Simulated assay, not measured.
Amino acid sequence: MTTIPQGDLRLLESDIARRMLDSTELARLAYVAQDGTPRVLPMLFHWNGTEIVFATFGGTAKLNALRARPDVAITIDTAGPPPVVLLLRGRAEVAEIEGVAPDYLTMQQRYYGPEQGERAAAELQEPGLRMARIAVRPAWVGTFDFMTRFPGGLSADEFARRGR
């Protein structure tokens, strides 16, 4: 996988990508707000094999911004050492849902366990609740772990010489 270039969707099959997609690290969703300024939100996520999915409450400014400008970037990473990083780019698709989004329950259970996940979803069950599902199908994938892959596609030696 070290010879696969950054941006190639085959990197989704790499150990780095699988580790991050299976992790309970927060994903950071970057998008452009209605006022044209960038935003980054740490969010729980679920990888369903083809999309990275987020759930949020309906009627928020971020949903309007995502509908207006659906191109997003996502990072899932560990602090390390060494850091391990998965970078994704794609277009967000937003769907509003009456009640608790099934993906919200899936995320809560994945991050906090079955009992706590059920409890968190049950606490939200109220008439009139609207949630939204944000799904991003990756169009670009990048990975680095500072052991087998380095930022910018550099080799370990090239990375060590940077700035000199």
Rank of each mutant, 00 (worst) to 15 (best):
G36E: 11
F150W: 08
H46N: 07
I4A: 11
W140E: 10
D35L: 07
D145I: 07
L87K: 15
E51Q: 14
L63S: 12
P114R: 07
I134C: 08
Q125T: 14
R164K: 07
Q125F: 02
L63V: 11
G142I: 06
R149P: 00
G36P: 08
F150E: 03
M147T: 13
T50C: 00
N64F: 06
M107V: 05
V94I: 09
F150D: 01
L21I: 00
L86A: 09
E98Y: 00
E51H: 15
L9D: 10
I97R: 09
Q109M: 05
F159D: 06
L124P: 03
T78M: 05
R39Y: 08
I74M: 12
G117E: 11
E96T: 13
Q34P: 01
D15M: 03
T143I: 15
L66H: 08
G128C: 03
R28I: 13
V141A: 10
E158L: 01
F159G: 01
D8Q: 06
A68I: 07
E13A: 14
I134Y: 08
A68Y: 05
L87H: 11
R119W: 11
V100M: 10
Y31M: 15
S155M: 10
M147D: 11
R69I: 14
A121M: 08
A101R: 06
Q125C: 09
L26F: 14
M43V: 13
V141C: 13
Y112D: 06
R133W: 02
R130L: 14
A61K: 07
L9M: 10
M43Q: 13
G142M: 05
L105H: 05
R67L: 11
F45A: 01
R161V: 03
A27K: 02
R162F: 05
N64V: 09
P42L: 14
I16W: 04
A65M: 05
Q108K: 05
T106L: 15
A156C: 03
E115V: 00
E93Y: 00
P138R: 04
D15T: 08
T37Q: 12
I134Q: 05
A27H: 01
D22E: 15
L41H: 13
P151C: 04
E158R: 05
R119F: 06
R69Q: 15
G142N: 07
S23A: 13
A55G: 04
I4P: 05
E123K: 09
T3S: 15
T106E: 15
A139Y: 06
A79E: 14
R133T: 10
R110V: 00
Q109G: 03
G7P: 09
G90F: 01
L41W: 05
A156R: 12
A65T: 07
A101H: 12
V100K: 13
D15S: 11
G99Q: 06
A135F: 09
R28S: 12
A132H: 08
